[in-house]
Amino acid sequence: MDRQTIPTAAPPLFTPAPGVRVVLASASPRRRELLAGWGLPFTVLTAPADEEPRPQAGEPAHAYAARAARNKAASVHALLDADAAQASLVIAADTVVCLGSRILGKPRDAAEALHMLEQLSGHTHTVVSAVALRMPGTWAGPAEECLTDTASVTFAAWPREVLAAYARTGEPDDKAGAYAIQGRGAFLAERLEGAWSTVVGLPLAPLAALLLRRGLLLPAARAVRY
């Protein structure tokens, strides 16, 4: 188990509802940065590194991503003691890259990263990000919710030597589809249809809408007393 509290110095955009403690069930620095951008206090808590579930035969990408996200949320929720579970909103996410019907996972090494990049080069692929939520034990309504969002990314047709140079940077190593659109791999994408945050790994618009609708987040202005 790994636990880390993320401080925030930025003026808050949102604030948790009274009594709600936000737990991000992800070690991804990209997801931490996106959530921290709300100025929201939260704790990062990850379960011991277990093998990620594999796609089942014929399983659609959105169903697989949702299943993997639910698995992460359940694993972290199980680590909480009774008092923490009563107060904690657990947020877990998973992102998959699909080329046609094929799901591209994380490459094992630079050679596999290059192979994935060559497949994506000059083509449009789909990125699906799922978010699974475990609600505080005191919260009314469903104890679990899950959402998915989809974006399409089109790569320019890059020469093999350019893709090989990117693969050698090491950035693709822990990324689904072997690239980071928010990092050095940004040059690969010629066109994006959908939300940038979905491609990075945490679809902010549908997540904010759901949490505001459930009353788990409040606009920060509502917390200011005059």
Rank of each mutant, 00 (worst) to 15 (best):
A92D: 02
A113R: 07
A140D: 09
V96A: 02
L99P: 03
V96Y: 08
A113D: 02
K106C: 02
P107G: 11
M116W: 05
P142S: 09
K106T: 05
G105N: 05
S129G: 02
L99H: 12
W139I: 01
Q86I: 00
G137M: 06
V90A: 10
I91L: 12
H77Y: 15
M116E: 04
D109H: 11
T124I: 03
L133G: 01
G141A: 08
D83E: 15
A132L: 00
H115K: 13
Q119Y: 08
I103F: 02
K106H: 09
S101P: 05
L117N: 02
P142W: 13
R108K: 14
V96I: 09
Q86N: 13
V131A: 00
S101Y: 14
A74R: 14
V76A: 06
L104Q: 11
V131W: 07
T95R: 08
W139K: 04
L80W: 14
G122Y: 12
T138W: 15
V127G: 03
L117P: 07
V127H: 04
V127D: 05
D94M: 03
S75Y: 14
G105S: 10
C98A: 14
D109A: 04
L114D: 03
A110D: 10
A93H: 04
T124R: 10
R70N: 06
G122E: 09
A140F: 11
L89Y: 13
L120V: 00
H123W: 15
N71A: 15
A132W: 07
A85F: 10
V127P: 01
T95W: 11
G105L: 07
S129H: 12
A143K: 07
L89F: 14
A74D: 11
A73W: 03
A84V: 05
G100C: 07
A130R: 02
A87Q: 14
S129Q: 10
H77T: 11
S129R: 11
P142Q: 10
A73L: 08
A143Y: 12
H115L: 09
D94H: 00
V76R: 05
L104P: 00
M135Y: 13
E144V: 03
V127Q: 06
P107C: 12
R108Y: 14
V97T: 06
G141T: 06
V127E: 04
L120D: 09
Q119D: 10
A68M: 07
V97A: 11
S129V: 00
V76D: 05
Q119V: 04
A84C: 08
H115N: 12
D83L: 15
S121G: 11
V128N: 06
H115W: 15
L89I: 12
G137P: 03
Q119H: 07
V131C: 01
E145D: 13
I103A: 04
A113G: 03
A87K: 12
V96Q: 07
A87E: 14
A85N: 11
L99T: 05
S101E: 14
A110S: 09
R102E: 09
A78G: 01
H115D: 13
A93R: 00
P136N: 09
P107W: 13
V128P: 08
A78Q: 07
V97L: 11
A69W: 10
A113W: 00
S75E: 15
T138L: 14
A113H: 02
N71W: 15
A69P: 07
D83A: 15
